[in-house]
Nucleic acid binder design. Sequence first.
DNA 1: GATTAAGTCAACCCGTTGGTTGAAAACAAC
DNA 2: GTTGTTTTCAACCAACGGGTTGACTTAATC
Lengths: 200, 200
Amino acid sequence: MAVDQRRSPTASERKRDPERTRARILEAAAAEFGAKGYAATRTTDIAARAGVNKQLISYYFGGKEGLYKELATSWHTTAAEMAHEAQPLDVVLASFVATTLTDQGRLWAWSNLAGDTPPTDEAFLRTQVDQLRARQAAGELPADLDPGLLLLALMAAASAPLTLRHTASQITGEDPATPEFAQKYAEQLSLLVRHLSGRT
Amino acid sequence: MAVDQRRSPTASERKRDPERTRARILEAAAAEFGAKGYAATRTTDIAARAGVNKQLISYYFGGKEGLYKELATSWHTTAAEMAHEAQPLDVVLASFVATTLTDQGRLWAWSNLAGDTPPTDEAFLRTQVDQLRARQAAGELPADLDPGLLLLALMAAASAPLTLRHTASQITGEDPATPEFAQKYAEQLSLLVRHLSGRT
DNA sequence: GATTAAGTCAACCCGTTGGTTGAAAACAAC
DNA sequence: GTTGTTTTCAACCAACGGGTTGACTTAATC
């Protein structure tokens, strides 16, 4: 660091940019919280990762907890755009699996276990359940399954590389936190769902 | 260590019983660790729950970490007896779901996320994969699925009430940590698996 | 050039936490 | 009663972690 450049102050290259540092802190926090969970992360580590002084996190977010809450709410927007349009089940599942690789995803998993924050957007869940029901009505999925519990099972299965990170690695011998694994796993899931519908 | 061969008063009525207090501490620790995860649990809380003085956990286990490790290894025996005999897939899944309700199960979920300890017994996993492969050969399951990834998906789905505790509650409006929920959910899962085999 | 905002630095405060110590009590066995 | 083990109690310690303070730099704005 300490790159000294005197240029015209185009906003993208500013030396002093509160928005940017805020974003950096948030990013670093997501990584740290996602890796170790709330209780085990140290604000010092967050600051270090963001390449920023530790007191800036108090300055911008009012402390560790404020930072966490800010992050917690942010994924609702992620969920919102994810459910924005009805898509084939393959795609939805692939999206689920994809979030597995993100810091946000890891954070979501932690908060789901800890139960500290409502982890998932309610509207998002309702939408998904409705879509599953529709697929049942269309004969794409067995009609005797409870759509809510089915959604739960599918979400859990999709986030296996995250929630069962260690076990996944034990079973496959690979690192489940790679794009390659995610893709392969997503394919298997859509294959599985296709078998559910009866279509071979 | 310190094997007590004296056989006089019924151990259940003893006022002083090192074995019993050890067990109590372990039990309390499983509950606390399972509820909040390692980093967030306080040794004081463990001692309080066990109804025991706090320095006894140092006395018997050499501190918080020793206690945790002792617990971590203990579930391998649980897994071992779970895989002891080949059973129908329904039953295996139901067993998975059942562990969801136990403190051991919660602890397993935490350690899986934190990645601190090899969470699952390797032999257990191998056995399960082999059994899935056998079921595929028997036509009970689609043959084009990778048995390892299938096991992963099934385990993840089965432990949804645990790993997606909060989300499960959001979807169903119920508390997923009840025997009733576990039973209902297990039924749905076996129904789902039955659909996989093609049998309606 | 002066002012203001953005950010750094080092030291410090203070509550918490895991762990320890050195008693003494309660109990069991002899 | 004596002895040895189990357990409690109260106080204490050192380390840590989150947060704060105040003085000091550096950049953008006017």
